[in-house]
Nucleic acid binder design. Structure first.
Length: 503
RNA sequence: GAUCGCUUAGCUCAGCCGGUAGAGCAACUGACUUUUAAUCAGUAGGUCGAGGGUUCGAAUCCCUCAGCGAUCACCA
């Protein structure tokens, strides 16, 4: 017999012990008056040995036991507090039950608050009751669960004993709230658009495919909400709209990529990409302040990043010129650009267009150096199929990407609103698709029809939330900021199931 | 997808020049009772990720596979 089964049987015996004395081991709700962390704050100043006489009821999980149940460390979502059980204050019928408790059990305790002579804030239990029996053992108490795979697969265990992990997810929530609140304060209307699309669009990516039975129709999980948000702009529900939601891309996993991830997209009619830069700064700064006590400074991997103030705005070609000495605005023939790029050691594929060469130069020579926040503007038309061209230079678009720590955290542009141009660009994408590019855009006639009704000049913005959370919590893997990251399936080990099948 | 690395008790980890598997915590039995990783005595717990090979003998060496991680490529 395995050890885990021994532990299970011992706990099952205790569970039966509770039933023997007429206590249901999975109780109904009880009234909780206080939380551990709040009590620690409230009584922070009382001295060792002081008994307050204040009666409280708390509830939480047993994290450790000393002196055969005399001392229990109880943990709730706010913190920990010690429970003291002694025959002086606890009736014999409760004293007798102390031996039935196991680590991990969820209990409720009522009693008076005191600080022990050893200076530990403590509740003298007068009433103690089991709320939920724990049958599975918790991780080792000193080191906790360090196996990173288990932490991702068993987040409920990770959260019970890992303060850092818990803190990250609380901060993630605060960041989303701050961004939502900033958007609302700026007059944006929060909207929802479909996650199941008949035609995937709005980005260049491979989609997940699913099927609707009743309609007998193929559907795609959205790779971006963009085209539907633009439909709402055309409809004029509001000049300013935003959506916070999940996108799905059927691509590789990495420390910076999860197949489902959260984006914030905002669209503003009668605005352009420059207005979007202001919006990025506002929302991101509020998010930073929300989790850094009002400061805009963050430390990521020992580097200090200051999100405050107005971020510099520099064009992509200018940045490339600074780092490589090549002014691609003066080398606009694709063949010449390829040649120039290769001269400085860039890995440029044959047949690249001008914009692709500029992008490669930027990726290889500039990107990593952009540690402090910056808006990289005027991206090439060739790599910006949904962005409006610059008035004075058709090679470039009114588009920018915001970089922090060498990562793109936002992407925005003045949206293409010309149905003829959109038609041509979809057609070009469709041809690429026929030629075997499975990431190319589908031809979305319905969207062109939408634009034919007239979309006002509009600024659009997308922010990758998960990476922002990584930056603001000093997390180095996207899986650390997603509660249940995508993993290969692993066998569960329910003891109830196993014992049932063995008997 | 490529390269490298990891996988030993429920958890955290030793053991790896090949010679029948070890500690701490958790668990169990008992002692003790104002502790703070409580302490003390004892008990139990393992298909060493899976499969194959070399060998008299494999946790240890070799091969295949799986899961996970790091880096790279695509991408946010």
């Amino acid at each position: 017999m395995t050890e885990i089964a021994e532990i299970y049987k011992s706990r099952l015996a205790n569970l039966d012990g509770w039933r023997d004395i007429g206590v249901e081991p999975y109780a109904n709700k009880v009234e909780v008056t206080h939380h551990a962390g709040d009590l620690q704050k409230k009584y922070a100043d009382i001295e060792a040995g002081v008994e307050t006489g204040d009666e409280v009821t708390v509830a939480g999980r047993i994290m450790s036991v000393r002196n055969s149940g005399m001392f229990i460390d109880l943990q709730d979502h706010t913190g920990k507090i010690q429970i003291f059980s002694h025959k002086q204050s606890l009736a014999p019928k409760y004293m007798d039950t102390l031996k039935l408790y196991d680590l991990g059990d969820i209990i409720t305790v009522t009693g008076k608050v005191r600080r022990t002579p050893r200076n530990e804030l403590t509740i003298n239990s007068e009433h103690i009751q089991l709320l939920s029996k724990s049958l599975q053992p918790l991780p080792e108490k000193h080191h906790g669960m360090t196996d990173i795979e288990l932490r991702y697969r068993k987040r409920h265990i990770d959260l019970t004993d890992n303060e850092i992990s818990k803190d990250v997810f609380i901060k993630r929530s605060k960041i989303i709230t701050a961004i939502r609140q900033t958007m609302l304060n700026e007059g944006f209307l929060e909207v929802e658009t479909p996650m199941m699309h008949p035609i995937p669009g709005g980005a260049v990516a491979k989609p997940f495919v699913t099927h609707h039975l009743a309609l007998d129709q193929q559907l795609y999980l959205r790779i971006a909400p963009e085209l539907y948000l633009k439909r709402l702009i055309v409809g004029g529900i509001s000049d300013k709209i935003f959506e916070i939601g999940r996108c799905f891309r059927n691509e590789g996993l990495s420390p910076k990529h999860n197949p489902e991830f959260t984006s914030i997209e905002a669209y503003q009619a009668h605005a352009n990409y420059e207005d979007m830069m202001d919006l990025v700064e506002k929302t991101v700064q509020e998010a930073v302040r929300a989790v850094h006590d009002g400061s805009t400074k963050v430390t990521y991997k020992e580097k200090e990043i200051d999100f405050g103030g107005n971020w510099p705005r520099k064009s992509m070609t200018e940045l490339v010129k600074e780092k490589t000495g090549i002014d691609f605005l003066k080398v606009t023939d694709p063949e010449d650009a390829i040649k120039k790029g290769r001269e400085i050691g860039l890995d440029v594929p044959d047949g690249s267009n001008w914009g692709q060469v500029v992008e490669i130069a930027f990726d290889e020579k500039v990107e990593d150096t952009l540690v402090q926040p910056i808006h990289v503007t005027d991206l090439p038309m060739d790599i910006s199929p949904l962005a409006k061209a610059k008035k004075d230079n058709p090679l470039l678009t009114e588009r920018f990407e915001s970089f922090v720590n060498g990562w793109e955290i936002a992407n925005a542009f003045s949206e293409l609103n010309d149905p003829f141009d959109q038609y041509r660009r979809f057609k070009a994408q469709a041809e690429q698709k026929d030629a075997g590019d499975d990431e190319a855009h589908h031809f979305d006639e319905d969207f062109i029809e939408t634009l034919e009704f007239g979309m006002p000049p509009t600024g659009g913005l997308g922010i990758g939330l998960d990476r922002l959370v990584m930056l603001l919590t000093d997390s180095h893997n996207i899986r650390d900021v997603i509660a249940f990251p995508t993993m290969r399936p692993a066998a569960a080990a329910s003891l109830v199931t196993r014992m049932d099948s063995e008997s």
